[in-house]
């Protein structure tokens, strides 16, 4: 088991594997994106209250899910990097942070666009919006710490500690903000009982969620490949790669 992990997490092996996986993930993302957009924009019926404007949900909700998912990825990868000193985990955490921040920003921006016609305001200090905003701050903190420390290994370990502290704090922040003020509708998909969202709207939502997951997988692998090259620039295999490229 350990040998398997060691082999597959070696930067050289990862670089090749990621290069082979990226097109697959990319095409799967595109297929799900087209299916999801088609279902979401043409097949799903208009909402009885919100008419067509609810359709931004198909971007907004998956983006919000991704923003939390990627933070968990960063924290788990950070913990793995701290405990087992696996370089690849550091790389994944470092390359995930900007993507996660973008998804968080996307969720906030689409929420704001959705809020204007529905609530009559671009921004309200509602619990979920606020905790999403704080999540964005946490992301920006990780990115800032990562870029402030010059040594990449140290930077990764420092941001891993920060990400873990953030993970302990996220539920506290979430519930404290919830207690403080709320206007946003409650969760409609992740409730323990049957989802209260109609199946015709749930299908495109899930399609888009899967599309976003594959988008993340594609982009994180691309970024991680560059990051690996940058971090391993003094190793022989990267030098070989570069000289191969030059002779071509």
């Amino acid at each position: 088991m350990w040998a398997f992990i060691q082999k597959h997490s070696s930067p050289k092996y990862f670089y090749r594997l990621a290069g082979r996986l990226i097109p697959w993930f990319g095409w799967i993302f595109l297929a799900f994106l087209i299916a999801g957009l088609y279902y979401g924009l043409f097949v799903a019926p208009p909402d009885y209250q919100q008419k067509d404007s609810y359709r931004i949900m198909f971007i907004h909700v998956p983006a919000a899910w991704m923003s939390m998912f990627i933070y968990m990825v960063i924290a788990v990868a950070g913990a793995i990097g701290l405990v087992w000193r696996i370089k690849l985990a550091d790389v994944i955490a470092a390359s995930s942070a900007p993507i996660g921040a973008s998804f968080t920003f996307l969720a906030l921006a689409t929420g704001s666009l959705w809020g204007k016609p529905m609530w009559g305001a671009w921004w309200v200090w509602d619990a979920r919006l606020t905790s999403e905003l704080i999540l964005l701050f946490l992301y920006l903190g990780i990115i800032a710490l990562n870029s402030a420390i010059e040594d990449k290994r140290t930077a990764s370990r420092a941001s891993a500690v920060l990400a873990l502290v953030g993970v302990v704090n996220i539920p506290i922040i979430h519930y404290s903000v919830e207690w403080w003020n709320t206007l946003h509708q409650g969760p409609t998909v992740t409730k323990l009982s049957a989802p209260s969202i109609d199946i015709s709207m749930l299908i495109p939502l899930l399609l888009m969620a899967i599309a976003f997951q594959f988008y993340y997988a594609t982009v994180v692998l691309m970024r991680a490949r560059c990051e690996v090259l940058d971090r391993e620039r003094n190793s022989s295999w990267v030098q070989d790669l570069v000289s191969d490229f030059r002779t071509k």
């Binding site: 704080i134 701050f137 920006l140 953030g166 704090n169 922040i173």
Partner: peptide, 9 residues
Amino acid sequence: LLVLPLYIP
């Protein structure tokens, strides 16, 4: 930037 978000609760 690192600490203030953690102070919110």
